[in-house]
């Protein structure tokens, strides 16, 4: 709908934007410390859903966890996470506790393990409000409102229920209510539908979209699922082996990928409408972030790879306004690309 330049204009930095700059996460691996996330930059713009996509091991979930300071103590995080003018990576422990839940909160992947089995749903949703000094009954009442808000029927009666008494979809709704309880401006949804039945997935995605619009939230959707992304994401950040390989408006990226990895991802998604179900599976296996190939990390699997790709790390460059790609041959792709992405729309 929007052209790249219009989008770039609407992306003016406001207090409602979370800016991630040059985020690098170093973790201890089998052979010493390794930068499993390397120089990742993107914005979470107010009222928009930013999709963070990549295969397992691409560092997408780690990136999300770094935004709320929940990287294991053994890791080192560098770069900037800017909330307004404040760099959250420099914030102290006490400040980060304030940020979590109140500014940025998380919806985790599997609601059957991410909810405490021995605490009632109401107590878990209302816990952050109790921390803020609400009485038990006030917190319970507010929790019921929140459960109602996320579409749990008969919410007032179900605040006293335990997670095992809910279905998978209902649990994920409760998880979302829990994330909303502190009235945050940013929601990080880490594979929020992966653990759910297909029929429930769409409803949860719709709910997240509705909440984003009603409550003026910015959302980061972490997923490996291109179909989910094509439905929900406004902006897209494609990660491979801990680095961003492509970034831009979601529709533009999916329709005309400017990076061979994105292109391969799009082609690998089987289309429901077309006979040939499995289109074009991605060759090879994902790069190990602890043992990233030299040069462009994607070169061992890339059809366009040349000598240069094996030695020189491609920089993330703006190819067309608002579209960034980390491929030496992105301009070539820009001129020729006309992939099968239309299927996804």
């Amino acid at each position: 709908m929007m052209s790249g330049s219009q989008r770039e204009e609407s992306r003016r930095v406001s207090a409602g934007t979370l800016r991630v700059r040059d985020l690098t996460i170093v973790l201890p691996g089998p052979r010493g410390m390794a930068d499993v996330v390397d120089g990742v930059s993107f914005d979470m713009v107010e009222g928009r859903t930013t999709g963070l996509i990549g295969e397992s091991g691409s560092g997408k979930s780690l990136t999300a966890m770094a935004l709320v300071g929940l990287i294991p103590d053994t890791g080192v995080v560098r770069g900037q996470v800017l909330l307004g003018d404040e760099d959250l990576l420099k914030a102290g422990r006490a400040r980060m506790r304030q940020v979590r839940g109140a500014e940025i909160s998380v919806v985790f992947q599997d609601p059957s393990t991410a909810l405490n089995p021995t605490m009632t749903i109401g107590d878990q949703v209302g816990e952050i409000l109790r921390e803020r000094g609400l009485s038990r009954s006030q917190a319970r009442e507010r929790a019921a409102d929140l459960l109602d808000h996320v579409g749990i029927p008969d919410a007032a009666a179900r605040v006293g229920a335990y997670p095992h008494e809910f279905s998978g979809g209902m649990r994920q709704r409760a998880m979302i209510a829990l994330a909303l309880a502190g009235q945050p401006r940013f929601i990080l949804a880490d594979e929020p539908t992966t653990a759910l039945d297909v029929t429930v997935q769409a409803r949860i995605l719709d709910l997240l979209g509705r909440l984003r619009d009603e409550d003026h939230l910015s959302m980061l959707l972490v997923s490996h699922d291109l179909r989910v992304m094509s439905h929900v994401a406004d902006d897209l950040v494609v990660m491979y082996a801990g680095r961003v390989c492509e970034r831009g408006g979601a529709k533009a990226v999916l329709n005309r990928p400017l990076h061979p990895y994105t292109d391969a991802l799009v082609r690998s998604v089987p289309s429901v409408h077309v006979e040939s179900a499995i289109a074009d599976p991605l060759p090879g296996s994902p790069a190990n972030p602890f043992d990233r190939p030299a040069g462009c990390p994607f070169h061992p699997r890339c059809p366009l790879a040349e000598d240069r790709c094996r030695t020189e790390v491609p920089a993330l460059r703006e190819i067309v306004p608002g579209r960034f790609s980390a491929c030496h041959f992105a301009e070539l792709a820009e001129r020729t690309s006309d992939s099968g992405a239309e299927e996804l729309r």
Binding site: V68, L70, M96, R97, Q98, V99, R100, G101, A102, S105, V106, F108, T113, A114, L115, N116, P117, E127, I128, E131, M175, L178, A179, A181, G182
Partner: peptide, 9 residues
């Protein structure tokens, strides 16, 4: 769920 608890601040 311990990570969830931490994510609440």
């Amino acid at each position: 769920y311990i990570l969830t608890a931490r994510s609440k601040g």
